[in-house]
Nucleic acid binder design. Structure first.
Lengths: 257, 257
DNA sequence: TTAATAGTGTCTCTAAGACATTATTCC
DNA sequence: GGAATAATGTCTTAGAGACACTATTAA
């Protein structure tokens, strides 16, 4: 939230639902690291999660999808609402900096704009395959970058907390949904998905037990292809079984790693 | 939400965060039934969940606690935020009825009041011990009653959905938190807690396995007392082990029933 | 003694977890 | 053949789930 506030159209008080923001923690996976897509508004030192507001004609879920689309160019990403944040002080401290940013951008917010007031943020997280994303910063962002969740830059507002909670929700959900589908390329190797789970859960998983459980769930399938890279044994490629995957999404599964 | 809107002070646009409502699904347990505390506004046929708005000086969690306190007279109840609801049509259909209720109550809302506009509802559920509650209806409620979740009356807005989702969240959380503590009297019998879990989960649980697992978790403790009722063997009383219970709340446990 | 409900023990089977060796590829 | 990484099988153990009888009370 709060960031895309810099888009001038947000001052249109008829278009948006006042006092309600949507923040979307966009996760990506690359180089054996879990990353978050963050933006830094013009003239700001601190970063924010991808955010925006809710049009009066759309649902909060649609707003969250729009935010993801704006920054990644991708539609229909996996998206989960995990919590809302609302208290009088969560944004106060950083308002002045934000206001300055408005002015630096040549936009003069009305002094009593609702954007500067108490606002509740409905937080989502989104999963996306890293290589598909070509990040697109907004007109008022100085930067839009992937950051490793393990080493975040200084964050505005309560956004460090929001990311922390998103990560908790992701770690909870990984046991119930086949998360890998969203974070890996269509074809992937066992070591890749193994490393993904280790990264997200932040612990090592025995490779034999991991493979056994994953295969017995039936959601991935071995292909008759090999990826040749390097001076060592080449790994087989795997893909998700769409049917099993959809069923798992819908009904939940239990993957007790 | 939406209901306590009938309180005239909600028209004070300075006091409350506009467009943000809090709905609180208050669960109680009695007579081997899981119940929800519902209110019916004056002159309305349909019922609503306990709800209200957020003061600009408080957090959404505080608002939810206040709502629970207003209706039950109890503080510090177990309270979980489980989802937010926001789309353009969720309340539309029932606005006219609500407006009528405003007027019947002798209160004339300004025609463009934010209360009638798009509003997002942040939904919580609360657990409370049935016998402790003396329900207190608000000035604009015609009724405030416990209803069995299995047989709900006609509900306003999307409140049937909200209750359904609250129940899903409760069923999810029952595996991770020692829910019984909030819904049972301080001293209770094994058949009582057994029946509580069966009711919430909507399935029968083998009494021997249930007892074994519950006791091995250590969160309840057998007392040296018996409750004498009826022409049959009298059950022992149990109580929760506060320390183990607090640890379970904080760190989560796994009760795989 | 009977009717009603409370309380408890054992067996089986599945699956989680611990653990180490062999296989492939390229240099 | 050596270095690097991929792949795979077995044993042990804990716990989930199925199952039925005995104990207590009061009428």
């Amino acid at each position: 939230m709060d960031t895309t506030a810099l888009d001038a159209s947000y001052f249109d008080e008829q278009l948006y639902v006042k006092h309600v923001a949507v923040d979307n923690v966009i996760f990506g996976y690359h180089d054996r690291e879990l990353k978050v897509l963050l933006q830094r508004p013009n003239y700001q030192q601190k970063w924010t999660v991808a955010g925006g507001y809710v049009r009066k004609t759309e649902s909060v879920e649609e707003a969250a999808h729009n935010i993801a689309f704006l920054r990644t160019g991708l539609k229909d990403l996996f998206l989960e609402q995990f919590r809302s944040f609302g208290n009088p002080s969560r944004t106060k401290e950083d308002w002045l900096a934000i206001k300055k940013s408005f002015e630096n951008a040549g936009v003069q917010p009305p002094p009593d704009s609702w954007i500067l007031d108490y606002s509740v943020s409905i937080a989502f997280y989104t999963l996306t395959e890293f290589s598909l994303v070509s990040v697109q910063k907004g007109p008022f962002d100085e930067a839009l970058e992937w950051w490793p969740v393990a080493q975040l830059p200084p964050m505005m507002f309560d956004h460090a907390l929001i990311i922390e909670e998103a990560l908790k929700a992701l770690r909870r959900d990984i046991y119930h949904y086949p998360i890998g589908y969203e974070l890996l390329p269509r074809k992937f190797t066992l070591p890749e998905i193994h490393s993904l789970y280790e990264t997200i859960l932040g612990k090592t998983l025995d490779n034999r037990n991991f493979t056994r459980k994953l295969m017995s769930s039936g959601i991935i399938k071995k292909l008759d292809e090999i990826r040749s890279i390097g001076a060592h044994r080449s790994p087989y490629l795997y893909k998700f079984e769409k049917k099993k995957y959809d069923a798992a999404l819908k009904n939940g599964i239990f993957l007790g790693f």
